[in-house]
Design a protein around this nucleic acid. Sequence first.
DNA 1: CTCATTAGATTACATGTGTAATTTAATGAA
DNA 2: TTCATTAAATTACACATGTAATCTAATGAG
Lengths: 123, 123
Amino acid sequence: MEISKTELEVMQAIWKQSPVSSSEIINRLNRKREWHEKTVKTLLGRLVKKQALDYHKEGRQYLYFPLVSQSDYQAQASQSLISRLFEGRISPLVAGFAKQEKLSKDDVDELKQLIANWEKEND
Amino acid sequence: MEISKTELEVMQAIWKQSPVSSSEIINRLNRKREWHEKTVKTLLGRLVKKQALDYHKEGRQYLYFPLVSQSDYQAQASQSLISRLFEGRISPLVAGFAKQEKLSKDDVDELKQLIANWEKEND
DNA sequence: CTCATTAGATTACATGTGTAATTTAATGAA
DNA sequence: TTCATTAAATTACACATGTAATCTAATGAG
């Protein structure tokens, strides 16, 4: 099942550190966001139903933890975007960034490092 | 307004070449997809309402053309994904691809080329 | 012990999305 | 000229999503 935009924000709060109670999740979210407590609870329930989260009981609270890891989610989501938008090729995306002046020197340095590593490992 | 997943597929068909009639759009789509004609018409209507498309009349048909360019859409969508998933940095996305063995030699060559150009232009 | 508070469960409700069917108007074939 | 076909417009309808409010049960403060 798909994780929606708002659900993703909840996942991010949990990926930071878990297991974590809903009240702490609400706290973390409200540093950036202004969501009603009930709204966050609804999203938690939906994420459990979607099997993106699970929990164990601690007294009368639930402590939530992810069933989907952040890196798995990132991999799936970026793969999906790149397939839909760029026929599966990554460099057009980077090229777009370059054209929009969205590439910093740090980015370029990191990319060079990645490429160097890739070349060391492959062939 | 947001362009949905199915709407995006329609946009792609139109980006290929326009202005284009709905019947030709349906044709293009049905090479990959199996959509009912009515479904495509609905999506066209929604895209017009969202101002992603417009059209001019040709006899009793409409010839559609994009109001949102493919490259603008790509730029916006990839920026949005990278903000949501990677705090705006592009290299973690590429790193994820590398780790998943999703980087080909061609990709790497293209990235190197991009970087070379970037370095020529910046500083 | 009692009661306000709080946790989770259930229900709500408008809008968006995927997927069409129905209606209306024009048109081209016979 | 008439009628089946076809274009676009309107309507439909279930499920998803964003954003809560209400209900029910437990609990901690006094």
